[in-house]
Design a protein around this nucleic acid. Structure first.
Lengths: 243, 243
DNA sequence: ATGAAAAAATGCACGTCATGCAAAATTAGT
DNA sequence: ACTAATTTTGCATGACGTGCATTTTTTCAT
């Protein structure tokens, strides 16, 4: 049971942490594989737990809901994207920086054909799970918005940012100066609060739409090309195409 | 029980249809009111059913999931928006047409302060439901995308529209031998398929972001102004604001 | 108006999901 | 090796969600 693990992400120090990550990954992988074979709705928590070599109760110790096991495949992808946004060249606009960061992440994810493929297949088979997947992305959205806000405030200069991906102390995300910056102009402050939110949300939507479009016309075009096209449309202000 | 109903939307002819809508609305309203009072997680299906004056089994006859009762407050808002998009003046760009249609719908919704307020409060209290709400919007998204595509094809002229929500399924129009032919024609067809999808998805996102921002800085600005600002940013291509 | 057909509401049984609690097993630190 | 902290596990319990047969309500034709 759960011998070989990807050892992905930060190879944690403690043995305890490693085991926790291992069981979590084992559960998620078992869930996806079983769902790909028998259909997501026919896979019980008992089956997943058995395949991962743990008890049913332990499953619910790691996931709040049965569906979460199918959805949360890479827990710290969001952290990598945030780091990439902060490290992006100052010359890039926020939209371009986001595009680059997400494209890089998606390119990496695409390389692990096997599981990613199965995962997409499972989500496609039951739209119910696609929604939850989107919800998982939404959780990262506010954190991403704060990073975007920080980048804008700093004028694009690389932000040192204290411990970007560390989940060691959950609870208070301690974003850099989230409530200071009393703008002189009321409208500007309003915009500065609204813009990062909107940008983060739209970027998530861009990912989802690209995936959907790519799934519909599969193999007809490279995924990253679709993704690029989407960001081009966004940057152009979504102009009306001529029929 | 369930005496007075809003009689909103298409006042259906048959008595049967009316009663169905009535019980559905009664269940949704009961769910929201109870959730607003006791918290969504503490409200059982039994309580909702009792408050609406129907059996538990009937509840599941109307909603697939308990959470759906909190989320789906107006079932045919999507249909009204689609109709409005089709009826919009030809001079408007797709983005503007969507903005207008959604703004009109939201303005109407906002007038029923009471329930809308409670609904927002419930969703805010448990982000779990916010996700499902977003999912409900997603269901309408493809239908909306098809309407947008129709509007673009027709060049903006009023489309007589044969039941936008119906399943016409024009999917298999792809000509055989589409392998080669890498002309600009191909790219244009690709774009025409991608654009409506993206526009529908972004519009949904705009609604969500506006609501979130408006909830955060409540009463500080009118909701429709926030909504207008969001569409202005989108139309401008999400340019970087100057810090 | 009356009876038959169609649609909806209901009751019941059953399996799965999800949580709380306390005991057993595993790991960390000394 | 011993103790404390953390994790895993089993058991009990309540709620969710579905299938099926039955009863009630609505529609329609006569």
């Amino acid at each position: 049971m759960m011998h070989i693990m990807s050892e992905k992400g930060a190879a944690g120090g403690g043995l305890r942490e490693r085991k926790k990550r291992a069981t979590r990954a084992a559960l998620a992988e078992a869930a996806v594989r079983l769902a790909a074979e028998h259909g997501a709705e026919k896979v019980t928590v008992e089956a997943i737990s058995a395949a991962a070599g743990v008890s049913v109760r332990t499953f619910f110790n790691y996931f709040d809901t049965r569906d979460d096991a199918f959805v949360v495949i890479d827990a710290d992808a969001g952290a990598r994207i945030r780091r990439a946004v902060l490290d992006a060249p100052a010359a890039l606009s926020p939209l371009e920086a986001l595009h680059g960061a997400m494209a890089a992440e998606l390119a990496e994810t695409e390389q692990q054909h096997e599981l990613w493929r199965l995962h997409a297949q499972v989500l496609r088979a039951s739209p119910h799970l696609l929604v939850r997947s989107l919800g998982a992305h939404m959780a990262d959205e506010t954190a991403l918005a704060e990073v975007i806000a920080a980048r804008i405030r700093s004028g694009g200069r690389p932000v040192s940012e204290s411990a970007p991906g560390s989940e060691s102390a959950p609870g208070s995300e301690s974003a850099p100066g989230s409530e200071s910056a009393p703008g002189s102009d009321e409208e500007r402050r309003e915009a500065l609060d609204l813009y990062p939110r909107l940008l983060a949300a739209v970027a998530s939507t861009a990912v989802r739409t690209s995936v959907e479009h790519w799934c519909a016309r599969q193999e007809e075009a490279a995924f990253l090309d679709v993704f690029r096209e989407v960001f081009a449309l966004l940057a152009a202000g979504l102009p009306a195409p001529h029929a």
